[in-house]
Each structure stands twice: as structure tokens, then as C-alpha cells.
Lab assay of single mutants.
Amino acid sequence: MTYKLISNGKTLKGETTTEAVDAATAEKVFKQYANDNGVDGEWTYDDATKTFTVTE
């Protein structure tokens, strides 16, 4: 399945996607992506749209 990340960081804003077997796997990928880009904030997940959002 395709999962989307919306980043509302102070230094990184935008969207990216990943293919993953489940939401937990996608979350690990996205949290590593955010960490690699210096984004640390509040996370939410919408199962209906398969979208994670991180806001700093």
C-alpha cells in the first residue's frame, strides 16, 4: 500500500510517499525520514487516507 507523509516542519515542508506492508512499517520509514531531515514534532495518522502528518 502507498502511505503519505505531510511534513509541516520549521525547515522542511512538503509531502512524500512510501510503499509499505502496513502503517507501522510506513511510520518507521517516515520517522527515520523526518529524523534525517531534522524534523521533530507531533505526529498524527489518518487511516482513511493512509496519511501521516508531522507538525513542528
Rank of each mutant, 00 (worst) to 15 (best):
M1R: 12
M1P: 08
M1K: 12
T2G: 04
T2Q: 09
T2Y: 08
T2C: 14
T2R: 10
T2S: 07
Y3L: 02
Y3M: 02
Y3I: 03
Y3Q: 02
Y3K: 02
Y3T: 02
Y3G: 02
Y3V: 02
K4R: 13
K4N: 05
K4P: 02
L5Q: 01
L5P: 03
L5M: 07
L5E: 03
I6H: 05
I6A: 04
I6N: 04
S7P: 04
S7C: 15
S7A: 14
S7I: 15
S7V: 15
S7W: 15
S7R: 06
S7M: 15
N8D: 09
N8G: 05
N8F: 14
N8E: 08
G9E: 04
G9T: 15
G9P: 05
G9M: 12
G9W: 07
G9L: 14
G9S: 13
K10M: 11
K10H: 12
K10E: 08
T11W: 13
T11D: 08
L12N: 06
L12C: 14
L12A: 06
L12M: 11
L12Q: 07
L12T: 07
L12G: 10
K13I: 12
K13F: 11
K13D: 06
G14D: 08
G14K: 12
E15W: 14
E15Q: 10
E15I: 14
T16K: 11
T16W: 15
T16H: 14
T16L: 14
T17E: 08
T17G: 03
T17W: 14
T17N: 05
T17D: 04
T17M: 09
T17A: 06
T18Q: 05
T18D: 02
T18H: 06
T18K: 04
T18W: 07
T18M: 11
E19P: 04
E19Q: 14
E19R: 14
E19T: 14
E19G: 05
E19F: 15
E19W: 15
A20N: 03
A20L: 02
A20Y: 02
V21M: 13
V21Y: 12
V21N: 10
D22I: 02
D22Q: 03
D22Y: 03
D22F: 03
D22H: 03
D22C: 05
D22W: 02
A23H: 08
A23K: 13
A23Q: 11
A23L: 07
A23P: 08
A24T: 09
A24P: 08
A24G: 07
A24I: 10
T25R: 06
T25Y: 07
A26R: 01
A26H: 00
A26L: 01
A26T: 00
A26Q: 01
A26S: 01
A26E: 01
A26P: 00
E27K: 09
E27N: 05
E27L: 15
E27V: 05
E27P: 00
K28G: 06
K28N: 07
K28L: 11
K28E: 08
K28P: 01
K28H: 07
K28V: 09
K28T: 08
V29M: 09
V29Y: 15
V29S: 05
V29Q: 07
V29D: 04
V29P: 00
V29I: 15
F30K: 00
F30Q: 00
F30G: 02
F30T: 00
F30R: 01
K31G: 02
K31E: 03
K31P: 00
K31M: 08
Q32N: 07
Q32R: 11
Y33G: 00
Y33V: 06
Y33T: 04
Y33F: 12
A34Q: 02
A34Y: 06
A34K: 01
A34T: 06
A34P: 00
A34F: 05
N35A: 15
N35Q: 14
N35L: 15
N35Y: 15
N35W: 14
N35F: 15
D36E: 13
D36M: 11
D36T: 08
D36I: 10
D36A: 12
D36F: 09
D36C: 11
N37T: 05
N37M: 14
N37G: 04
N37A: 10
G38I: 04
G38Q: 06
G38K: 06
G38D: 07
G38V: 03
V39G: 04
V39I: 15
V39L: 14
V39H: 04
V39R: 03
V39Y: 07
V39T: 05
V39D: 02
D40R: 13
D40P: 04
D40H: 14
D40T: 14
D40A: 12
D40L: 13
G41R: 02
G41W: 05
E42I: 14
E42M: 12
E42S: 10
E42D: 12
E42L: 12
E42Y: 13
W43H: 00
W43P: 00
W43G: 00
W43M: 04
T44Q: 09
T44E: 10
T44H: 11
Y45P: 00
Y45K: 01
D46T: 04
D46W: 03
D46C: 09
D47K: 08
D47L: 06
D47E: 14
A48E: 12
A48S: 12
A48P: 06
A48C: 09
A48I: 11
A48N: 11
A48M: 10
T49W: 03
T49A: 06
T49I: 06
T49E: 05
K50W: 05
K50S: 05
K50T: 03
K50D: 01
K50C: 05
T51R: 03
T51M: 03
T51I: 05
F52W: 06
F52S: 00
F52M: 00
F52A: 00
F52Q: 01
T53M: 09
T53Q: 05
T53Y: 13
T53I: 08
T53C: 08
V54S: 01
V54Y: 04
V54I: 13
T55H: 09
T55F: 10
E56S: 09
E56T: 08
E56H: 08
E56L: 10
E56Y: 10
E56M: 10
E56N: 07
E56I: 12
E56C: 08
